[in-house]
Design a protein around this nucleic acid. Structure first.
Length: 610
DNA sequence: GTGTTAGCGTC
DNA sequence: CTCGGAT
DNA sequence: ATCCGAGGACGCTAACAC
């Protein structure tokens, strides 16, 4: 297939807003693809390269060659160039990677260059990704989209599914091939996702009879276990996007290898916990005997520390894990030492682990679902049964404090049916966790779906902040002033001139089209020249007069913003032109939120008062 | 050697 | 990860 | 009910720059 043909058809895809039309065009392309092209084409149609990491990005696209006049490139020429780039490593590899790209670009027409640039940068923006591709595959193969979707969630691999759908001889064979795809231990499935609701009653209204669990602020993991030829357990671990992280998580491997089963597919979360005596619960004398597992009494570390540990790979991961393995107080069954791990003198723990006291913390695996055990698929089993299997398997690892909530609407005796769930949510927050997930007790494991069966509930904080600048939008927001720079008042001038504001982050989220239009107009009126005396740059600085109400999930420590704090998941709730900037929230208020989330006293308050 | 940056992953 | 808009 | 794209903060790694 000529690249030019692909580029032309994808322009059609980008030009229509109809998903059905997009899928039809993609289906036409899929039908034309030869067997060798299909795996590559499938990925290109969803706007991605088959190579997960090429080392090429938007930066390497700058200053490319002029377009070629004639369309000579094949789709597979692009793949050859990308494969060559991805294979480069070592000194000089950046230049050689770019060489492969520029060589390709020099042979590409303008339209082809645009397509290649979109694929390399990951910003093809043609309004078609996996969801449209699924419909296209269904159309090309002559089978219902649901059949393709099911196969894809169970295999996690679009290329495999595309080959099954289009390599078959006719719709009947395609359907048979797709329906033959099933869960396999050793091949990750798309994890089930959660919708969200503002509070527990709203969540229960969506789920009906529910199980409620703490929502932990860690990294989602899917853990598979089977047996090697010699009968020894083999464990592999994947993240939410099906990135394999087995080598980063020796603690998880060891923990699952110790479970009493032959084959398993498990779903859970990993996170760092503080040592038990770090929590301010020493006055709670009942803790040790109330049946609460030890790890549930420990506070979570900030997400950044968990993230750091999970992202550390290879030998360093093993070393860090080994250093942390002895630091906790959990039972051996919960956290066995990684087999073969040798903590040597050169072991360097993550600089953040242990809150500066130098003690590495153990990475905790918390399981909340089981998709398969010893030959039995449990995806279609109701949650309450999957939980039974899980608790039977790993009583020490199950999710904390799960409460069974009665039907949200079934109210026999006048008590609030959501009270137990609400109490669990309060406890989760008090212990430093994110919130709760409310899960329909009878629901199957809907891999890859963000349906109503799981509903997360997190508290929403708000701050009134000052707009310091705004960035120009792109794509759908071109021509508008979109991304707001947000600051808190700094009356004492701790981070700048007294009476000024200190920047805490940026957001473009939460804006309706009407709000976007309003802020574009009003911020233009507040624009001031930048350091170069211009007002037409990418960043438009403004007089710090407009107050915006900002929702956020929390405050995190920041290495880049001057106050050392940044906003997590900030989004605009409302513009507040009625509120003077002098009444916006102060950086001290932000510090108080940060301290509260960490279970510390407010640093801005005198501990002797109250 | 030390510090910076792009790419890519997590949320 | 969040959100609004479009299908 | 879904999908898509507008982009946020951080941390690790490899390669670059000095």
């Amino acid at each position: 297939m000529l690249l030019a043909a692909l580029a032309a058809r994808l322009e059609e895809v980008a030009a229509t807003s109809s998903r059905r039309e997009k899928a039809e065009v993609l289906a036409g392309l899929l039908r034309q693809a030869g067997p060798a092209e299909l795996p590559v084409l499938v990925r290109y149609l969803e706007g991605e390269l088959p190579q997960r990491r090429t080392g090429l990005g938007w930066r390497s696209l700058a200053g490319g060659p002029p377009p070629a006049a004639a369309a000579t490139l094949e789709v597979l020429d692009v793949d050859a160039a990308m494969a060559a780039a991805a294979a480069e490593q070592g000194p000089g590899s950046t230049g050689r990677r770019r060489g492969h790209l520029l060589d390709l670009m020099g042979r590409a027409t303008a339209a082809e260059q645009h397509l290649v640039a979109g694929l390399v940068s990951g910003e093809l923006r043609q309004g078609a990704q996996r969801g449209v591709l699924v419909e296209a595959l269904a159309g090309a193969a002559g089978v219902p989209a649901a059949v393709v979707r099911r196969a894809l969630t169970l295999s996690g691999d679009v290329v495999e599914v595309a080959v099954a759908a289009l390599g078959a001889d006719g719709p009947a064979a395609a359907r048979a091939a797709l329906e033959a795809v099933r869960l396999e231990v050793g091949r990750p499935v798309s994890p089930m996702l959660a919708a969200s609701a503002p509070d527990v009653p709203a969540a229960l209204a969506r789920t009906g009879a529910a199980v409620v669990e703490w929502k932990l602020d860690g990294v989602r993991v899917q853990v598979h276990r089977d047996e090697g030829p010699d009968g020894s357990p083999r464990v592999r671990v994947w993240t939410r996007t099906l990135e394999e992280v087995t080598g980063s998580l020796p603690e998880v491997v060891a923990a699952v290898a110790a479970l009493p089963a032959r084959t398993l597919v498990l779903d859970g979360e990993v996170l760092l916990l503080r040592p038990a005596d770090d929590a301010d619960e020493a006055d709670d004398a009942d803790d040790a005997d109330d049946g609460v597992p030890a790890w549930q009494r420990r506070r979570p570390a900030p997400f950044q520390e968990t993230s750091s540990r999970v992202a550390t790979r290879g030998a360093r991961a093993v070393a860090v894990a080994a250093a942390g393995a002895g630091a906790g107080d959990e039972l051996p069954a919960e956290q066995p030492a990684p087999a073969g791990a040798v903590p040597g003198p050169a072991v360097r723990t993550s600089p953040d682990a242990g809150d500066g006291d130098g003690d590495p913390s153990p990475l905790q695996l918390v399981l909340f679902d089981v998709l398969h055990r010893d030959g039995e698929d449990l995806l279609d089993a109701p949650l309450r049964r999957r939980r039974e299997v899980l608790l039977d398997l790993a009583p020490h690892l199950a999710v904390p404090g799960a409460a069974a909530a009665p039907r949200a609407d079934g109210d026999e005796d006048g008590d609030d049916p959501s009270a137990p769930a609400a109490a669990l949510a309060r406890e989760a927050l008090a212990r430093g966790h994110e919130g709760v997930v409310v899960k329909g007790a009878g629901s199957p494991y809907a891999a890859g779906r963000r349906g109503a069966a799981w509903v997360k509930v997190k508290p929403r904080l708000t701050l009134d902040l000052v707009v310091l600048a705004v960035e120009r939008g792109s794509g759908r927001r071109r021509g508008q002033l979109s991304n707001l720079w947000l600051g808190a008042r700094d009356p004492e001038g701790r981070f700048g001139p007294p009476g000024g504001a200190v920047m805490l982050g940026k957001t473009f989220k939460g804006l309706t089209d009407a709000m976007l239009a309003w802020q574009t107009e009003h911020l233009r009126a507040l624009a001031v020249p930048d350091a170069d005396g211009r007002e037409d740059g990418y960043v438009v600085h403004v007089r710090p007069e407009l107050v915006v109400e900002i929702a956020l999930d929390g405050v995190q420590t920041s290495p880049r913003y001057p106050a050392g704090l940044a906003l997590r998941f900030a989004r605009v709730v409302a513009h507040r032109p009625d509120k003077p900037a002098a009444e916006a929230d102060t950086v001290a208020a932000v510090e108080a939120l940060h301290a509260a989330a960490r279970g510390l006293p407010d640093p801005g308050r005198d501990p002797d008062e109250a």
